[in-house]
Amino acid sequence: MINSVATAGGLFGPPQTVSKETGGLNTVIGYWYHEDTYKNGADHTIKQNEIYSQVAYGAKNIWEIYARIGVSDLKIFDAFSSTDASTTTDKNDFEENWEFFGTLGAKGFYPINKTFGIGALIQGTYYFSNFTDDVAGTSGSKPFTTDLKVKNLWDVNFGVGFQAIIPYGIKLYAGPYIYFSEAKVSLAANIPGLKYAGGNVSVENKSIAGGFAGINIPLAKGFRLNVEGQYSDKFSAGAAVSYTY
């Protein structure tokens, strides 16, 4: 039985908001590549590519709230691999293309001095749509077709970030984070040798902690580039471009 999964909602971004001190919006377009491993008996790797748009409001250089909407694919390696010699399948991996997700988050920042500061963030993501993929094969020489659904995928992340502002207004940041994610996984038919055959299975992440680091670079005319990496079981990374109003 597989009982772990990990999802992602994109970059955390620098702990300090990029909105104007007097208060204002900033908007972001971002891409995030997410990879993770989950285990229970067998190791499984998941991969996701996400594209999202974000609206944020921040003020006083110390706080920000934000909302994202985006689309993501999902690939689970070896999800359809059979453990029973009498069952064969036409493919091993679960794959589904773009499904919608939404993310809400908030950040708080405390400046220690002009250069350094510390902040905290909380970010939660929910997938509005189910991921579904079909599989066909034979079980005991009888042909079958069934589908696997990944439903109610959500996660929540909590992180603490340390930030340094270097010349040209470039922000470097890094810190640890913890996260929890959950989803319901079900196979439509009970096929011997296939995982998730036991009906609705609740799956969770195995690794609960990781680290993140990134750089936020001012471009021109109010735009900023943010590049970030996160590591828990595997390395994930992404980039986003923000515009400050």
Partner: peptide
């Protein structure tokens, strides 16, 4: 892209 589908006018 940055105006959230055109709702904003950056």
């Amino acid at each position: 892209v940055w105006g959230v589908g055109g709702l904003l006018d950056p």
